[in-house]
Design a protein around this nucleic acid. Structure first.
Length: 354
RNA sequence: UGGGGUGUCGCCAAGCGGUAAGGCACGGGACUUUGACUCCCGCAUUCGCAGGUUCGAUUCCUGCCACCCCAG
């Protein structure tokens, strides 16, 4: 009896190929499509329906059974409500990091076990490696698609049963395998936007859940130079959508003043560069931090090169000091730590330090 | 109602007789499993208005209008 693996299939190429590879390797593969969001997209079309059709087609091609599991309530309770709360506080959350911790590698893992599977797999571009009894999370081989940033909150318990069949491949190789095997998703465009929710007019999307509170746009000296529609619509480092013209360099959001409901903007980016930050609730994939104080590298947003830094654990969380300034430290986003190829874990950014 | 100055795209701003630079904003696209950033493309047949001179005017002249400044 071969080992049963439940593959989380999104309807995209990566998870399609992940399922295919596992099947080839002789596993007892079951494809499962997660439905985590109810509403239809802006065009009125339910993208999830199309995605499930693709999952069905691909599973038929590979020759594996497929099912759907509904985590709409779990997603709302454990991910989306927190997402809204963060925006309400004027912060910029990363729902997908939470989604991985709470849904894809928790609710989904529980589900897999309930159907007799010891392991789960996804199409994430990451790798794992066993090192003296621990599972390490490694960056994906394709540096351009590495998704370890999004998995920074996973624990040993979650990583141990996880398999990432495409983590050692490049995106081009994944597509080539899909093409040569005749998988329906071979040339399907990569999905973007919040996972399970998709590409949206973000302002309008937020507006349906949170009330907008217009206020002033002020420069660093406090001079009012415009009006904003609601602090939640902007994030630190943002340039567009401010509607501010005039002389010289473009304007950027450099800070938010919640007490005055004002958006602080400035011409040029110089004020956006910071040397250190404070983050809360650090999570270590190994279960323990490397030390009370240590050096590593870190990135403060997805698809950004990591910068050498030193991390010092503190009462509130940790202080991260960078070797070179980082641009646009945004509270609510995650700072994720790396030691070479190994993703150590991450913490939630609370504030930039001067 | 004496003097001086200025009126070019939503905002700045080149241009000074030869047939409207550029930046910001904005729109579209690319990139992207967050939000952002970035990149690419687009964006004034028209230069406050009306006349005149000229082969030809945003550029010269006249008048009018508007705004600004200094005087009062």
């Amino acid at each position: 009896m071969s080992v049963r693996v439940v593959v989380g299939m999104s309807g995209g190429v990566d998870s399609s190929v992940a399922a295919l590879l596992l099947k080839r390797q002789g596993y007892d593969v079951i494809g499962v499509f997660m439905k985590n969001w109810e509403e239809t997209g802006e065009d009125g079309v339910c993208a999830a329906e199309e995605d499930f059709r693709d999952v069905r087609t691909v599973c038929n091609t590979i020759g594996i059974p497929y099912y759907t599991v509904n985590f709409v309530k779990e997603y709302w309770d454990r991910v989306f409500s927190h997402f809204l709360e963060e925006y309400r506080r004027g912060r910029t959350p990363n729902p997908d990091i939470l989604c991985n911790r709470e849904i894809k590698f928790r609710a989904f893992l529980d589900y897999a076990r309930s159907v007799g599977a010891a392991r789960i797999a996804t199409g994430h571009f990451v790798r794992t490696r066993e090192n003296s009894g621990f599972v390490e999370l490694l960056r994906g081989v394709d540096a351009n698609k590495d998704q370890s940033y999004f998995l920074c909150q996973l624990s040993q318990e979650q990583l141990l049963p996880a398999m990432f069949p495409v983590g050692g491949m490049t995106k081009a190789q994944v597509r080539e395998v899909a093409r040569s095997e005749g998988l329906a998703t071979a040339v399907k465009k990569d999905s973007t936007g919040v996972c399970f929710i998709g590409e949206r007019d973000f302002g309008r999307f937020l507006q349906t859940y949170l009330p907008a509170q217009p206020g002033d746009m002020v420069d660093p000296d406090g001079v009012i130079i415009g009006a904003h529609e609601g602090l939640m619509y902007y994030t630190i480092g943002q340039r567009h959508g401010l509607g501010l013209g005039g002389v010289g360099e473009p304007w950027f959001v450099v800070d938010k003043d919640l007490s005055r409901n004002s958006l602080i903007v400035c011409r040029g980016e110089s004020l956006l560069f910071k040397n250190s930050l404070e983050a809360s609730r650090p999570h270590w994939i190994a279960g323990e931090p490397p030390g009370e104080q240590f050096t590593c590298s870190a990135k403060i947003r997805y698809r950004q090169g990591d910068v050498p830094c030193s991390v010092t654990l503190s009462q509130a969380g940790c202080i991260v000091e960078f070797a070179s300034p980082v641009r646009a430290v945004a509270p609510g986003q995650s700072v994720v730590f790396y030691l070479g190829e190994v993703c150590l874990g991450g913490a939630v950014i609370e504030r930039a330090l001067p």
